[in-house]
């Protein structure tokens, strides 16, 4: 979709990315920061999937009922990998947050900085 000659889908992806980035840098709550990171990840995945789309295309599954043109399969495979990576990063981050909470009793950066 074009708006003022700009590729609106792509621009929206960047907006989403920046929303996530803003959450990551401005929120004090570690969980919210992590959610911000997840939003950023989603934005990048959306970007990748969007880039592989094609006008009037079908999913790249060559069975009866689909027809050319097909969307490119590579971005979808990339995103699948990306999602798994994102899940793993989130898991580790959550484990760390649990650790911080168990130790300090808080997950607010403002309070953590004043502790020691």
């Amino acid at each position: 979709m074009l708006l003022f000659g700009l590729d609106l889908d792509y621009v929206l992806v960047v907006v989403l990315f920046c929303v996530g980035l803003y959450m990551l840098v401005s929120k004090s709550n570690l969980l919210k920061k992590l959610l911000g990171l997840n939003v950023m990840e989603t934005a990048v995945f959306a970007f990748i999937v969007t880039s592989g789309m094609i006008e009037g295309g079908d999913p790249p599954i060559l069975v009866a009922g689909t027809a050319a043109p097909y969307a490119s399969p590579i971005p979808q495979a990339m995103v699948l990998t990306g999602i798994v990576v994102a899940v793993s990063v989130t898991a580790v981050a959550l484990a760390l947050i649990v650790q911080i909470h168990a130790h300090f009793g808080t997950i607010e950066v403002d309070e953590l900085k004043e502790l020691p």
């Binding site: 590729d7 792509y10 621009v11 992806v13 789309m53 094609i54």
Partner: peptide
Amino acid sequence: VVNLPPHD
């Protein structure tokens, strides 16, 4: 991103 080739 806006300078990429149109994706569709």
